[in-house]
Amino acid sequence: MMILVTGGSGSGKSAFAEDCVLACGEKKRVYIATMYPFDQESKKRVLRHREMRAGKGFDTVECYVGLKNTEVPSGCTVLLECMSNLAANEIFREDGAGEKTEDEILMGVEGLKKQAGDLIIVTNEIFSEAASYEGETENYQCVLGNINRRLARMADTVVEVVYGIPVYHKKGEDFCEKPVEQL
C-alpha cells in the first residue's frame, strides 16, 4: 500500500504520517530523512522530528540525493519525509540530478515501492499564494507539482492534512480511516 500525505506548512502532516506507519503493524520501520541540516533552523527542525519519532522503532536512513540508490529491508514500512526537500536537494545541489530530477525521483520511489511492504510519502503544498516567482523557484514549484501528480497516480490513498484533520482526495480500499484508534 502506498499513501501520499500532503498539506501546508505546520499542518500536522508528519504526525499523521507517523500514525499511518504505526497502523501498518509491527513490521520493520524505516524513516528516510531528506532534510540536510545546513543551519541552526534546519538542525532545530530535524531535532523536533527526531523527538516526534522517538520510541516508535524507526531505523533512520539519510538520503539527500539519489533516492534510487537507497535500499530498505524487504516488506518493511517506509516513511519518506519530505519530498519537497528531496526535490530541492536534487535541483539545487551540485551532486543533485538537476534537470533530470523528476524522473530520477520517480525511479527512486518505484524502487522503494517494490522493496517496501507499505510506503508512506510526505510532500508539501507550496502552490497557492499571492507571491509569484520566476526562474529557479518557479521551476522548483513546477517540478514538485509534477512529482506530486505522478506520486498521486501511483498511490492507493492521497490525503491532505489540514490543521491535523485528514481530507481524503483518493482513498484506497484497504486504508484504515482512523489508524490511531486501531492500535
Partner: peptide, 23 residues
C-alpha cells in the same frame, strides 16, 4: 502555509506559528 518557504526569517516563523497554533 500553502506557499513556497518565505525567505524572510519572521515570515517563516509566523507561517509556521499559524500552522502549529491552528492545528
Amino acid at each position: 502555509g500553502y506557499g513556497v518557504v518565505p525567505v524572510d526569517t519572521f515570515d517563516r516563523a509566523y507561517r509556521e506559528a499559524v500552522g502549529r497554533v491552528c492545528t
